[in-house]
Design a binder for these strands. Structure first.
Lengths: 353, 353
DNA sequence: ATGAAAGCGCTAACAG
DNA sequence: CTGTTAGCGCTTTCAT
C-alpha cells in the first residue's frame, strides 16, 4: 500500500478558499483576527472537502496533541478483566473521560502502567515521549506515587491525581471518601445501630484512612465507641472474610458493618451466613463500592456509589482548561451517594445495647 | 509552559553516537544495512539518553502511526456503561486488543461511532483523518455496514470485521456462532432433551441466523423437529420475556431453551418462575453470552463463552502483520466454549416425549 | 553501509 | 486583519 498521505490537507483548503495556509489554520483553531466573511469562506471549503486536521501534524508544529492519557495500574486492571466479576471501573472512566474528551475535540488514550516495577519511570516516560499528551490522569495507587507525580510535574504536562488530596503539583481529586464513610455511618445510626463495625482497606492507600476517619467522626458525633470495631482488609474477598469473622466473633459483636470494598462486603455476607446471622435482620452491611456485582448478592447490598464517571469527566475538563486558565490548587471533590438496597435495616430490638 | 518540545530527539542520539540521523532511524526501525558495531553504539546512546521516538513525527514522515483504532457502536456501548449490569465486552476487547498492541509496540485507541447516524462516514472519516491509524477493528453492527466497510476499504487501511464472514475487503472474523449453537444444542441433546427451544437475536445481525442455523443443524442431526420452537428477540430482556413466554405457553412446550443473549436468558429464567417451572429440573436454559452477570443468577446459567479477548488480540496481530504479509482471505474463526453451570440438567422423566 | 537533502501537515513568529 | 517564513522530528528518496 505504501505511504499513505493525508488526502485533504490544509493546503487544499487554502487553495480552494483562495487564502493562505495561516488563515485556514486560524479558522481551525478558532483564533481571533479573522473577518467573518473570510471565516465563512474557509469553513465552507472545509465542509466541502471534508477536511480534518492531522493531529500528528498539529502536534509536530508545537501545538497540542489533543490526546489525554489515562493511566491505571496494570496488575489490578488485568486481574479485574480476567476475573470477569463485573467490576466496571475502567468502563466508568471511559464513560466519563472518553465522552467528555470527544466533546471537547480530544481523545482519551488508556494505558496500563506497572506500579511496582523498578522502571515505572521508563514506562510512563516512554508513553509521554511517544504520545506527547496534553494531559494525564493518574489513579490510585499511581496518584500517590511520588516517583510518578514527580516525573509528571517535571514534564510540564498538566495532570490530575484521582484519589489524592495532598498538596503538590497536579490537580488533586477525590470522591469524598471521608464524607461517604460518614454518610454510611449516619444511615446506620438513623436505623438505630450503635455498634457499627468497619473493615478498612490496605494502608498504602490514603483513602483507606480517610474512610476510617469519616466513620470515626460520625461515631464520635453520636457518642458511640469505636473500640474493637475496626478491622483491616486489603480490598480482597479473603481479607474481608477474615475481618468480618474477627468482628462477628469479637467481644463487641457489631449489628452493622461497613466494608471498604465490594468484595469485602460480599465476604461479610458470607461470614454472616456461616454464623447463621440473617442480613439485614441480624446484621446490616454496607459496601463501599457500588459495582454491578453488589446488586446480585443476596440480599442486594446497600452501597456507596463512587462517581467515577463524573470524576473522570471533570478531570478531562480541568486538564484541557488548564492550558488556558491554570488549575485549581485545592482538591476537587466529587461526592458519591448512598444507594440503599436490601442489606440494611433497622436494628433488631434484642440487639440494642 | 508554552510549546512543549520533545526532550530527547533522534538528533541528540545521533550526536551522542557520532552518526547520522539516518543511521539512528535505521536502528530504531530495525532495518538492514547497519553494521552490528554501529547498531550497538546507537542502541547504547538510545538507552543512555532514554530516547523514545515521537509517533507524531513518525507518522508525519510517512511511516506508521503505531495506532490501532477499535470502533464500537456508540449507543449500545454507552447504554451498557450506564446500565452498569456487568456486561464487559469493552473490557474484554481491551484485555486482548490493548495488551497485544502494546506487546507489538502499538497502541489501541477506542472510539465510539454512531451507526444509525446519516453521517457515519463523517464520523469515521474524521477519526481516520485525525489519527491515521495503521489498522481498524470494527465490531457488529458496524462490521456489516457496507458504508463503513466501503469507506475503510477505500482508505487503504487494513481492517478487521469482527462478527462478519462475508467475502470482501478486510479480515472477516467470527467467534464460531454456528458451531457454538450446535455445541449448546448437542449438550442438551446429550442430557436427553428433544424439544429444545431457541430465542434468536435481531434480524439485522448476520450472527443471528448463523446461530439459528447451528441449532437447526444439530436438531436435524438428531432428527428432532424445530417447528414451533423458534422465537425472535432483540437481545434485550423484554423481548426475551415475550419470547420465552411464547415458547413456554406454546403447543410444544420445550424442556430446554437456548437464548441468544444473557438478558434474554435471564428473562427466560423469569418466565419459568412465573409458570412455576423449576430450572433446571423442569427447564434447562443456556445463555449465549457468558457475561459476569450470568454467574449470579439463580441458578447460575450454563453459557456459551465468546472469546472476545482472544479475537481482539488476533485482530491486532493480523492487522499489524497485514502491512508485510497481507491478510487471510478466508474468515478467521475463534471458537468459544460451553461453560456448564447450574441451569442445565438431564431432562425429567415425565417430560420425555 | 552510511550520509545529505527534501518534505510530511501544521503552527509560531514575524512581517505587512 | 492577512500572508510569508521557518521549523517541529522523523523517514523517505537519492547520493556516495
Amino acid at each position: 500500500m505504501g505511504r499513505r498521505r493525508q488526502s485533504v490537507t490544509i493546503k487544499h483548503v487554502a487553495a480552494d478558499a483562495g487564502v493562505s495556509l495561516q488563515t485556514v489554520s486560524r479558522v481551525i483553531n478558532n483564533e481571533p483576527n479573522v473577518r467573518p466573511a473570510m471565516k465563512a469562506k474557509v469553513q465552507a471549503s472545509i465542509e466541502k472537502l471534508g477536511y480534518v486536521p492531522s493531529i500528528a501534524a498539529q502536534r509536530m508544529s508545537g501545538s497540542r496533541s489533543y490526546l489525554i492519557l489515562a493511566i491505571n495500574d496494570r496488575d489490578r486492571t488485568i486481574a479485574d478483566w480476567k476475573a470477569r466479576d463485573g467490576r466496571d471501573w475502567v468502563d466508568q472512566m471511559l464513560l466519563g473521560g472518553m465522552l467528555t474528551a470527544a466533546e471537547l475535540g480530544y481523545r482519551m488514550i488508556f494505558e496500563l502502567v506497572d506500579t511496582h516495577s523498578d522502571h515505572v519511570e521508563r514506562e510512563l516516560g516512554a508513553a509521554i515521549a511517544a504520545l506527547q499528551p496534553d494531559g494525564v490522569i493518574v489513579t490510585p495507587p499511581h496518584s500517590e506515587n511520588a516517583q510518578i507525580t514527580g516525573l509528571l510535574a517535571e514534564s510540564g504536562i498538566p495532570f490530575a491525581r484521582i484519589g489524592s488530596k495532598e498538596a503538590g503539583p497536579g490537580i488533586a481529586m477525590t470522591m469524598g471518601d471521608e464524607l461517604l464513610a460518614g454518610k454510611a455511618t449516619d444511615h446506620l445510626i438513623e436505623l438505630g445501630h450503635t455498634r457499627i463495625g468497619f473493615i478498612s482497606g490496605p494502608a498504602e492507600y490514603s483513602l483507606t484512612s480517610w474512610r476510617v476517619d469519616g466513620w470515626r467522626e460520625a461515631m464520635a458525633n453520636a457518642e458511640f465507641d469505636c473500640d474493637g470495631l475496626l478491622e483491616p482488609g486489603d480490598f480482597g474477598f479473603e481479607s474481608g472474610l477474615a475481618a468480618a469473622r474477627a468482628l462477628l466473633d469479637g467481644d463487641i459483636r457489631p449489628t452493622a458493618i461497613i466494608a471498604s470494598s465490594d468484595q469485602m462486603a460480599l465476604a461479610t455476607l458470607e461470614a454472616a451466613k456461616e454464623r447463621g446471622l440473617n442480613v439485614p435482620k441480624d446484621l446490616s452491611v454496607i459496601s463501599f463500592d457500588n459495582t454491578p456485582i453488589v446488586r446480585f448478592s443476596n440480599p442486594p447490598l446497600t452501597a456507596l456509589d463512587q462517581p467515577i464517571s463524573a470524576t473522570a469527566a471533570r478531570a478531562v475538563e480541568l486538564l484541557i482548561d488548564a492550558k488556558k486558565n491554570g488549575h485549581p490548587s485545592e482538591p476537587v471533590v466529587l461526592e458519591g451517594e448512598l444507594v440503599v438496597r436490601g442489606s440494611t435495616a433497622r436494628v433488631a430490638a434484642g440487639a440494642r445495647a
